[in-house]
Design a binder for these strands. Sequence first.
DNA 1: CGAAGGGTTGATCAATTTCAATCGCGGTGG
DNA 2: CCACCGCGATTGAAATTGATCAACCCTTCG
Lengths: 240, 240
Amino acid sequence: MPNRFVRKLRGFADLTQRDVKVLVEATSRARPYPAKFDLIREGDEPGPVIAVLAGWAFRYKILPSGTRQIMAFLMPGDACDLNIGLLAEMDHSIQTLTPATIAMVPRAEMVAILDSYPRIARAMYIAQLVDEGTLRAWIVSMGRRSSIERVAHLMCELFIRVHAIDGLSDEGLHLPMSQVMLADALGMTPVHINRVLKHLRDARALKMVRGAVTISDPSNLVRIAGFDENYLHRRLRTAA
Amino acid sequence: MPNRFVRKLRGFADLTQRDVKVLVEATSRARPYPAKFDLIREGDEPGPVIAVLAGWAFRYKILPSGTRQIMAFLMPGDACDLNIGLLAEMDHSIQTLTPATIAMVPRAEMVAILDSYPRIARAMYIAQLVDEGTLRAWIVSMGRRSSIERVAHLMCELFIRVHAIDGLSDEGLHLPMSQVMLADALGMTPVHINRVLKHLRDARALKMVRGAVTISDPSNLVRIAGFDENYLHRRLRTAA
DNA sequence: CGAAGGGTTGATCAATTTCAATCGCGGTGG
DNA sequence: CCACCGCGATTGAAATTGATCAACCCTTCG
């Protein structure tokens, strides 16, 4: 059974057995990392490609004022881009959110693979496009949605992404992050996030047990967020 | 002299003469469009790849509430992504900002090119990565920068991008857009944009002649925006 | 000439942040 | 075992930012 990363790419292109074998080998040197561990720091020269095989991670940037902005959540199957020698250094950092197992593929090896296996290159490219769509949705949220819609929308997005990799537990989605984390992802204050969560809980859109947010049924969230249901269905269909 | 699109890609990978010839031919059927013309509308099924050869365009999305969010500005040399058959339909629209000349490459043709010419594929991939970096910077702005910093930061970004394609006039950067447009790009109100612009003008960070914003020297903007100077230099070096 | 699209400004309103305090819980050292 | 510490959650009140509402002023263009 190939790992999550390979399974995801297989969903994007018709990979041959050989393609799969190459990918599995490339990601075979995976190792576990603790939570809150910086995998890549801003200013590092771009090193290996990382692929998340288990656990969550996130991209973030610390501003001169000391505030943090989270720009993306990475979950099993997601890879960080390659920055193929273009940029002199990373302009942001990547950190594990939970304990995670990460595969590091030396950049040269990944480049060689991309040059030799066009189907793999195609799949990586499509994964990139999907990520870009997520970034655009994030921008729309930050720019034009109210704080309540914004929170609800992120929850919807995470819900379908976890659903797509069969990661939902019996109770639905568990968010493995603190309110501070959510605040930094959505450009808000922890205090305000807390009030918004209370609002959403009162609206029966989510549950909070012992501080942790859980979402069993996203339908209320979808309504509140103005989440594009077609988009949801489309993604869920892809997952099926 | 190849068009802007080809020139840009050439900057990302060592294209052979044959690569260049293929690209030039693919983008030879360009035609002019007026300003404010929708090239692609949300809901369309993904059609041809578009490449901007002259003029500006932008990606945007209209929310159910009727508000608009602009997610990216496209300038000469930029291409829209391919959404290679993955998504059933576009989740946003693309419109010309100024009169523009646009090349439409049939999707099948572009896919064939990517499969047959790995260097072109590589260059397109890198262009994609650069765009993604821009999106991330946009998210950071929207999430954690004040309105003044946010406006200043966008100006810096546009300044270096135009500089990189030798598009600066003698007086510097002319922004071909209304304040409403800026507001929709930055998630603000036109009224507030107006006040921020006044502030920036008072701080001698930009000029406004007959309503149009002009930036001759971005150094004040860079300071106000907290714009990463290394990033600036890196990009300018690339341009040189 | 009249209408429309920008731009500009003032006054008021509402959403968020900021500041401050308190609480609960898990872990740790004595 | 227990006091203490620290992180995250929670709540209230004050301060601030940016949005909204409402005019009014240009310039352009049919």
